[in-house]
């Protein structure tokens, strides 16, 4: 098979394409699959058991972290971002840091709106809050 000639912008090839690359791809596949199965297990665990609210939140936090791990593997291995030059990686990753503020600020805002409504609109709170005795799961 003749080696591909790169476009003029590309000075060197990131990795020698070969069997080890294929191995890496399948390894990543298994990692993604196993993480997904763990996530599903945790999701069903929340359904099957009656955790207190903080317990549910903790499990949801673990699932969110596992999701970030999956995202890392997809971007780093499948999209080969991990093989690029550091400066280029930074131009992608640094702007995405905006999400830290974005998520925190807006979830905080939603939560604050709920608290205000529950404080000043008792009818809303009564109508929409789940009573513990009728919540038995089937």
């Amino acid at each position: 098979m003749d080696q591909q000639h790169a476009p003029s912008e590309v000075t060197f090839h990131h990795h020698v394409p070969g069997e080890e690359n294929v191995k890496r791809i399948w390894k990543t596949f298994w990692v993604l699959l196993i993480i997904t199965i763990i996530e599903l297990g945790l999701g069903l665990l929340m359904y099957a058991t009656d955790f207190p609210q903080w317990g549910d939140l903790a499990v949801k936090g673990i699932i969110a972290i596992l999701t970030l791990a999956k995202a890392f593997y997809i971007v780093s291995i499948f999209m080969h971002l991990g093989d690029e030059i550091r400066n280029m990686i930074m131009t992608i990753v640094v702007p995405l840091m905006l999400f830290i503020w974005f998520i925190a600020a807006f979830l905080w805002d939603g939560n604050s709106y709920k608290n205000l409504r529950n404080t000043y609109d008792k009818h809303f709170e009564e109508r929409t809050t789940e009573k513990k005795d009728t919540t038995s799961k089937h």
Partner: peptide
Amino acid sequence: RSPFNVEY
């Protein structure tokens, strides 16, 4: 050369 070593 491309400082990012990536095609445009």
